[in-house]
Deep mutational scan, measured.
Amino acid sequence: HNLTITQGKLFFHYNPKLCLSEIHKMEEVSGTKGRQERNDIALKTNGDQASCENELLKFSYIRTSFDKILLRWEPYWPPDFRDLLGFMLFYKEAPYQNVTEFDGQDACGSNSWTVVDIDPPLRSNDPKSQNHPGWLMRGLKPWTQYAIFVKTLVTFSDERRTYGAKSDIIYVQTDATNPSVPLDPISVSNSSSQIILKWKPPSDPNGNITHYLVFWERQAEDSELFELDYCLKGLKLPSRTWSPPFESEDSQKHNQSEYEDSAGECCSCPKTDSQILKELEESSFRKTFEDYLHNVVFVPRKTSSGTGAEDPRPSRKRRSLGDVGNVTVAVPTVAAFPNTSSTSVPTSPEEHRPFEKVVNKESLVISGLRHFTGYRIELQACNQDTPEERCSVAAYVSARTMPEAKADDIVGPVTHEIFENNVVHLMWQEPKEPNGLIVLYEVSYRRYGDEELHLCVSRKHFALERGCRLRGLSPGNYSVRIRATSLAGNGSWTEPTYFYVTDYLDVPSNIA
């Protein structure tokens, strides 16, 4: 807008934040220059609390790290170098490059900038070799853009010569660093050979998330399962459950009422301010606690030095998902009996873990797994792929695949051998790939016309006998059925096997 004052003059007093240069501009645009008398524009009460600059400061050096910015700028000295009290560095987070010096300023003089007072450097006698002032900004957020400017702080001049310097606002972004852990990993099994893994992005990506790394490792069953005799009275049979499938998407929606109208769909109840505040506090606490764990609990591995020492970490090797089922080394339970199943799973520490690289999504279907087997899954978020990966501390989750139908069934015939004193040795093959492992066998036998009897055969007993022995049988026709019990439950009964026990007292003698 054009402003013209045809008559009258300007009068400025007691404006401590208004620089004289701005008042002189007002004289020019209003056409009143030359009308004012000496005392109409006070030299001592206008701009006496402001830094009124008329020179431009330029930054000469900028260096960044993930949490620091090192700045240096060209030296500046007023005509009387004693008038320079120091520099004021202003900075704040700036997602967009549209910041002005006066953003967030209120009537009390406060604003949204963080201000650092910096002492002037030592003055050199040689004007050509003056030290460049600077400042190291610490405690910054990774991968965050900051708006920065600097200006001088000078003393009051009796001659009211307006001098000083100020830089333009520059924008500097800190470097990326390792992201925080992925949030809320959930693993479920939808079949006997697959596990579905879902997660949420890290709360602090500290860069642009480029991919996720998912490692999985087959877990050995508890050692007590191999040692305890679950045929003993009072000892509860062990059981394991597989990871249940995901709930429906509708039930997972946030901010939804727990109660549904019987007449149909209901609208979600909005969260109160107290609920939102509580969630923010919980989120802040979780982030602080995660940072504490990362800094205190997890110790970084030592990389190899120039002395030739090897990095103890196993090298990563990509495998196809079809090879995942046989990740671990199978060892027989008892070496003397080769027909026992290889369900003991000690994992070799030198073995390469299978892994998958996930790009542009937060889910993965891990296939080719062994049925009813526990897996430990390790999830890392990465925001750099080359020249070397920059990934987060791992988040861990466990899951067990679903049982395989008929995996616990005894394959092959049940054979028998009759000894003296009416002892019958029953023999059968253990299931080759049971659900988890076989903890015991149930032997059901009966003599024709009598009630059915049951015998429990422990895992250890089966390994020693290759089956079991029935003792003290009365003469007669017998039928026997056997079924295995694994961590997933009972298998199917075998087809009945028949044998006849004679009275050993009636056996004919070869003595003449």
Rank of each mutant, 00 (worst) to 15 (best):
Asn206Tyr: 03
Asn208Leu: 07
Asn208Asp: 02
Thr210Pro: 02
Phe215Gln: 11
Arg218Leu: 13
Gln219Phe: 13
Gln219Cys: 04
Ala220Cys: 15
Leu225Glu: 10
Leu225His: 05
Leu225Cys: 06
Leu225Gln: 10
Leu228Arg: 09
Leu228Tyr: 14
Leu228Gly: 14
Leu232Ile: 13
Gly234His: 09
Gly234Asp: 11
Arg240Lys: 15
Thr241Val: 15
Trp242Leu: 11
Pro244Asp: 13
Glu249Ser: 10
Asp250Gln: 07
Ser251Asp: 12
Gln252His: 08
Asn255Pro: 15
Gln256His: 10
Gln256Gly: 00
Gln256Met: 04
Tyr259Met: 04
Ser262Gly: 10
Ala263Phe: 04
Gly264Ala: 15
Pro270Ala: 10
Lys271Phe: 12
Thr272Ser: 06
Ser274Leu: 06
Ile276Phe: 08
Phe285Gly: 05
Lys287Met: 09
Thr288Glu: 14
Phe289Ser: 06
Asp291Cys: 08
Asn295Ser: 13
Val296Tyr: 07
Val297Asn: 06
Thr303Asn: 14
Gly306Pro: 14
Ala309Asn: 11
Pro312Phe: 10
Arg313Leu: 05
Arg313Glu: 15
Arg313Asn: 05
Pro314Arg: 15
Lys317Gly: 08
Arg318Leu: 13
Arg318Trp: 15
Arg319Pro: 09
Val324Asp: 05
Gly325Gln: 15
Asn326Ala: 12
Val327Cys: 15
Val327Trp: 15
Val334Gln: 06
Phe337Tyr: 12
Asn339Lys: 10
Ser342Leu: 15
Thr343Gln: 07
Thr347Gln: 08
Ser348Arg: 11
Glu350Gln: 09
Glu351Ile: 14
Arg353Gln: 15
Arg353Val: 10
Arg353Pro: 14
Pro354Asn: 06
Lys357Glu: 12
Val358Phe: 04
Val358Lys: 13
Val358Gln: 14
Val358Pro: 06
Lys361Asp: 04
Ser363Tyr: 08
Val365Lys: 02
Ser367Glu: 04
Arg370Lys: 15
His371Pro: 09
Phe372Ile: 01
Arg376Leu: 07
Ile377Asn: 01
Gln380Arg: 04
Cys382Arg: 00
Asn383His: 12
Asn383Ser: 04
Gln384Phe: 10
Pro387Ile: 11
Glu389Arg: 14
Ala394His: 15
Ala394Lys: 12
Ala394Ile: 15
Tyr396Met: 09
Arg400His: 14
Ala407Ile: 02
Val414Asn: 01
Glu417Ser: 08
Ile418Leu: 08
Asn421Tyr: 05
Trp428Val: 00
Gln429Thr: 04
Gln429Met: 15
Lys432Trp: 09
Glu433Val: 14
Gly436Ala: 13
Leu437Cys: 08
Leu437Asp: 14
Leu440Arg: 06
Glu442Pro: 01
Val443Lys: 00
Glu451His: 15
Cys456Val: 02
Cys456Tyr: 02
Cys456Ala: 02
Ser458Phe: 03
Ser458Glu: 10
His461Val: 10
Glu465Ala: 09
Arg466Cys: 15
Leu470Asn: 01
Gly472His: 07
Leu473Ala: 02
Ser479Gly: 03
Arg481Leu: 10
Arg481Lys: 14
Ile482Lys: 00
Arg483Tyr: 02
Ser492Ile: 12
Ser492Cys: 06
Glu495Gln: 06
Glu495Asn: 12
Glu495Ala: 08
Phe499Lys: 01
Phe499Cys: 03
Tyr500Ala: 12
Asp506Thr: 15
Val507Leu: 02
Ser509Asn: 15
